[in-house]
Design a protein around this nucleic acid. Structure first.
Lengths: 248, 248
DNA sequence: CGAGCACTTGATCGCTTTCAATAGCTGTGG
DNA sequence: CCACAGCTATTGAAAGCGATCAAGTGCTCG
């Protein structure tokens, strides 16, 4: 993983890298200025818990860089990941005080936070924010439902292939590459985190990754660096037919 | 199930039974009048498909009475239910033309439909609608995530208990009863539909229902009429500890 | 009375889990 | 420099849970 600390540069909204995708995407300059009056940045290290389920939330915010996970835990310790937070994704729920899930940084991470009360107040008066948040929430709902199909009906092999294809696709769009032919990326999750996402055990994840490697669907270097020689083949293994779907 | 057709009485919004919970909940009288200019009702019979995945949608709307399911299907026929639509729930996604899921009426059903274009146009100008839709979407997202835990990490027995507790709870709130002591309700789903919801086979559903009955967690009459003598016991079987959560 | 449907129950199979041992890597301290 | 702890990941063997295949029941409707 990254050795040196992520450089942390607080910045103006107008220079912001996630500006066009985040909750503020539709805001005009005046609205951005208003947001900046109650905005601040926070950094987290890989492995750090950002929010504990049940905690009182005094902010909402956007992931600026890095990756975080949203997980639920049962009393006996079984855990299920229910979301993967990537740059531009929104954290927190306006109108609710308590956090519903644990949020954990899996890489070093920078969050753009807004104090909750002012944000809620502004949202009530600023359609641009509510509209964008609605779009984002609808997208997340679609992603959650796609994931319900994965969890409920796919085999372990298909689950792994599904996860790899999501990560590959996301990586391609973030880096403005196409989704065809060979794709190369790093897994941002441990085997255990993948297992929590997929409703499997880490041993099964390991076995199925080995199997996909053995069958030539993927190539692996150093456990985390993946090459997909033929993306269509991977999609096939995921049980999806070339067709879209499977958002993150 | 119901033999005679559901009486269909088109009505004014002011008399509407779901008015305080549906997407129009925050609308004032003027806004309701505007909605009525592009509103119409449709009825569906039990078993009828309301929307096919991939279809072009020319309306959005609210379930007025009856129950519908939202399902996804893989090419090989495996299906996963991704949502249960109850009275006041919203159908369709503003801003998207194609339907993402199959919507099927499991009972006779009445829908309050809005022509899509006028609805979208009005939503852009009416914060009350967008605000309410955001609230509803956030609730659905929470429900979907709760369900991911059920699908990914619970045993067959826990899955059944989870589903029963959700239905019991919903039934209690709809009929303004409390969530304690004995609860009685009818299952609105076939064993197969339950299996599709829970990521199981219908045989496993049947076996686990029999097991819960044998163990005294539930009583059954006529396959669909359920009595829960002790709701806390059911929650325990679901792996939830008395605690809230588990929305529909 | 027989067809069709929803459901139940039994027997067996196989995938995923569980338990367990091992490998590889990194950082620490003698 | 090497030994060792701690972590991630792999792999093997055995067990268990849910799926699959297969009857059979009870009910409704024509």
């Amino acid at each position: 993983m990254v050795k040196e600390k992520t450089a942390f540069v607080p910045h103006d909204c107008v220079d912001c890298q996630i500006r066009h995708r985040a909750v503020c995407a539709k805001c005009d300059v005046t609205e951005l200025e208003q947001l900046e009056t109650f905005k601040y940045y926070r950094t987290y290290e890989a492995g750090q818990t950002i929010i504990w389920s049940g905690d009182r939330m005094d902010f909402v915010g956007s992931v600026v860089s890095g990756i975080a996970t949203l997980t639920q835990t049962m009393e006996d310790g079984r855990t299920q990941m229910v979301g993967l937070l990537l740059p531009s994704d929104f954290v927190g729920r306006p109108g609710r005080d308590g956090a519903a899930y644990d949020v954990v940084a899996t890489t070093d991470l920078v969050m753009c936070c807004f104090r909750k009360r002012p944000f809620e107040k502004m949202m009530a008066q600023t359609p641009h924010i509510a509209q964008r948040l609605l779009e984002m929430t609808l997208d997340e709902l679609d992603a959650a439902r796609e994931w319900m199909l994965v969890l409920g009906r796919k085999t372990a092999r298909e689950k792994i292939a599904s996860l790899l294809s999501i990560i590959a696709r996301r990586d391609a769009t973030l880096n403005l590459r196409g989704v065809d032919g060979e794709m190369v990326f790093d897994l941002p999750l441990t085997r255990e985190a993948m297992a929590d996402y997929l409703g499997l055990t880490l041993e099964t994840v390991s076995r199925q990754i080995s199997a996909l490697k053995r069958d030539g669907v993927i190539q692996l270097e150093a456990k985390r660096h993946v090459t997909v020689p033929d993306f269509a083949r991977l999609m096939e293994e995921a049980g999806d037919d070339s067709d879209g779907g499977m958002l993150v």
